[in-house]
Amino acid sequence: MKIVVTIKQILDPAGFTVNRRRERVFVNREEYIINPADLNALEMAACAKDGRQGVEVIALGLGPARVDDALREAIARGADRAIHLSDPALADLKTDAAGAARLIAAAVQKIGGVRLVLCGAVALDSGAGELPGRLAEALGWPMLAQVHSIDQIGEGQVRVSRRTERVESDLPALLTVPHDANQPRHMLGVRVVQAYRQKSVAAWGLSDLGFTPNDLEPLTSVAGRRFPPERTPGTRLEGSIEEAVQSLVAQLRAKELI
């Protein structure tokens, strides 16, 4: 049984600082990491492999040459092999999630025999949570969102636990995994060495998937940046304790902090 895990490489937020007053993002260190929730998805796939025979975990990443590093790390963390979707034409195109979904769906079909696709529920950079749903649709598969554990994999169904309910879906299916679903395992040293020496990452371009750049014109594009208002340290909430707390709760809710 093949399980595909989508891997997104993002700019590490620890490497940049946002200056609200000057309305600029200063990239102090340009470093890249695997989207944290994707590591949880990879862990879920690795757990599904523990104790089962015949399970192959394939990491799939889309992006420029540096994504190769992320895919090697995915192998070190439990994937059996990896596929890198990369094409010079994509760099200029600035493909959106709609295009990415079609590319990834085509790659999954090309791999063949895939029963489960696991995606991190949300990417830390965009915070959009858009790709998994689009991908499920492009594949024509059911989607189970916010899965905390895979309980059982049968011939034609999969049973999972979400935060408050247990759900069953026909296979093949796409699962999204939140960042608090599990604790990703450490990289096994010998897997790190193997990831670069013995395991290879296959590279597929647009033509391998049957696309031309014209097929992938983006429906949305990022046109600029805006910045939140500057922080105001030292602001006091006035009034009685009860009033102050009401105001506090309202403000925290408006900022989606609670």
Partner: peptide, 20 residues
Amino acid sequence: VAVRPVYQGDYYEVVNFAPH
């Protein structure tokens, strides 16, 4: 034309839609 938060609200992006 949409404005949406990225990196958990560190800053925002302006999103344009193609005429479609």
